[in-house]
Design a protein around this nucleic acid. Structure first.
Lengths: 202, 202
DNA sequence: TTATATTGAATGAATATTCAATAAATATTT
DNA sequence: AAATATTTATTGAATATTCATTCAATATAA
């Protein structure tokens, strides 16, 4: 049972790191501060993560795992109802719960690392490919959508979703936020409800 | 002429800061390192920028100013030809020259600050509004586009552009990059070439 | 002569990391 | 099952380095 303590401590540290980074920013989340935050000597953190690089690597893994959870209710619904609820999908893609699953500030701080660290870049790319692939699979389970080029459709949708999140983060005013949000939702809905034309076909 | 020295030194420092941040990452660009990079004592940097916060603020201003330059050739062309070259616009929006105007790594590192610094958030929002507004103005100068709801169109286009840049940064392979790039260009082109329908009208 | 520019040395606080010592859990031998 | 040996977990103190910032002194320009 020696493995258990290690695993528990490791995820305790990663979660504490993430929570602290959320509060003070990734660049200000030092090992000493993580220790204080968790009431744990810094040397113990170093025991489990011999360098800060490893800590950051695992933080990124942790964030990207959380990111995936967005689909759960959609997949559940399609399994029960047998048909895709397009509106529910759009709602979920733009749900604020997604914002609860992970913090945008930490997420973009880590994202900024892709420009100088190829392993971070690889991890991020893998995540985004997986997000697209899962959406494609979901679309393929629906009679109407399956007629279209679902891979392309999934890509088009995600470009809008990602562009939207990027932009929405700048908006303070709640009314304006809702306005823009509805606008983006409609943009995705238009993609989903488009007819099957020549270059949409599989 | 005392003003001149100050101005010159200030922009020398900001540019040096930017260049260094490009190389080693924003979080690693310390005042001492900027000094070494510019062959200048750190105390001189502190003389012109009494705190690092001010330095970062000006760096952001500097980056955002560069960002605007993207439109120059488009505006020039429309002033000469009197009509908008849609394809040239799309090419420019996705031109790699944009990547030369500023560094994505530094840009996103600064962007990540919007989540904890409202003045950075404000500056970024202002930039993005300006980018949309300029595009709207450009569209309004064209006979065909002016019939549409150009504000909405500009927003739709930028969501795709921003989502695209976000995604493209993860791609290493040149072939794959070009493929995706063409895909994104087409997505924008479809928006620009769409007919004027009910909710597209002004 | 007065304001600004520039220098180099010094500050204390914070940084990641190391180390030796102890405590606790697990494995091995009686 | 008890006793011993051996890994692992945990602690606190210490390391050298880097950090932003301050200061007094000097040089240069207005």
């Amino acid at each position: 049972m020696k493995r258990k303590i290690r695993q528990e401590r490791e995820s305790e540290i990663i979660e504490g790191f993430y929570q602290l980074a959320k509060e003070v920013g990734l660049e200000n989340a030092s090992i000493a501060k993580i220790g204080k935050h968790l009431d744990m000597p810094p040397s113990l953190i170093m025991h489990y993560f011999p360098s800060k690089d490893l800590l950051i690597q695992d933080l990124i893994r942790y964030i990207l795992e959380n990111y995936q959870l967005i689909y759960e209710p959609i997949i559940e619904h399609i399994n029960v109802a047998g048909v895709l609820d397009v509106h529910a999908l759009v709602e979920r893609l733009f749900s604020r719960e997604w914002n609860l699953l992970f913090d945008d500030g930490v997420f973009y701080s880590c994202y900024a690392m892709i420009f100088r660290d190829s392993s971070v870049r690889g991890a991020y790319k893998e995540l985004h490919l997986a997000l697209r692939k899962t959406l494609e699979d979901i679309l393929n389970q629906d009679v109407d959508q399956a007629q279209k080029n679902t891979r392309q459709l999934a890509e088009q949708i995600f470009v809008v979703v990602e562009g939207a999140y990027y932009y929405l983060a700048m908006i303070d005013d709640e009314r304006e936020y809702q306005e823009k949000l509805n606008f983006f939702k409609k943009q995705v809905l238009d993609l989903l409800e488009s007819e099957v034309d020549a270059d949409m076909r599989k």
